[in-house]
Design a protein around this nucleic acid. Sequence first.
DNA 1: AAGATTTCCATAAAGCTTGTATATAAATGA
DNA 2: TCATTTATATACAAGCTTTATGGAAATCTT
Lengths: 144, 144
Amino acid sequence: MGHHDIGAALYGLATRATRRLPRDMSLTSAATLATLDRTGPRRITDLAAVEGVTQPAMTTLVRVMEESGLVERRGNASDRRITLVCLTEAGAAYVRARRQAGVDAFERLIGRLSTDEIDALRAALPALDHLAELESQDREGPKQ
Amino acid sequence: MGHHDIGAALYGLATRATRRLPRDMSLTSAATLATLDRTGPRRITDLAAVEGVTQPAMTTLVRVMEESGLVERRGNASDRRITLVCLTEAGAAYVRARRQAGVDAFERLIGRLSTDEIDALRAALPALDHLAELESQDREGPKQ
DNA sequence: AAGATTTCCATAAAGCTTGTATATAAATGA
DNA sequence: TCATTTATATACAAGCTTTATGGAAATCTT
């Protein structure tokens, strides 16, 4: 308790940043590609749970991304019910490009801050990374 | 240039945070309500430009939010083409509740950081607020 | 001041995304 | 073997957004 001001600042920044993201793909699709990039091939049901959508929604989404050449499906010999979803090279390239665009946008804003402000942000870098890690854990941990 | 690490941390945090937002309303609707709360009544076309959607999309969205009692339409005596969209008390309450939930989620994560990390974040608070302000300016300035 | 142009909003039709309900195939357990 | 559970797919409906277009009001031009 008592970190309301910091929480408010981060929430405001995050919600505003969201509205600048490219609209060429749903946020769920982009997040799914990023998850595949970070953690490797996953099952459909797994991905649905991590991204917080239903399994049919993820099935449709994977089908569209497969048709776009961003992911591939692979069967599983030991359990033939399973479809493993794998990022293709094109998919990995898309993830990199989208991430780069988002990071660049932030960099441009940071460049307009004062030196002191930038120093303060840099000093807070471990905290920001730790927060991101905690976010991920909360979402990917409570599965399986 | 050269603030890539900070930009990457903020981008990662923002994209992850986005996936935790309530799904009871579209991100565009929620952002529109927040904009009305921050800046007061606005025209439809104005809102569409600020939120980065087309005017017909905003018209539909405003109609739905009006039916839900979150906003009101008001005519304009001096220019009868214009529809001013105003937040109702219920709309303002929704904005507050949604914001509170988002801030609380961040607060819980912050509570799991070390004392040093929290101190660093607090020292970076002016920078974070300034960044949020710059984001808003970029989106609301290039209109009119 | 009339007519043309522009501005502002609404409507219509279509596409994409997501959800609920359900079906099918494979694995597991009795 | 048969029942149950698990993993994915399909069908259908609902919501959001886009493009194209229409109508009303304001502004500009002469």
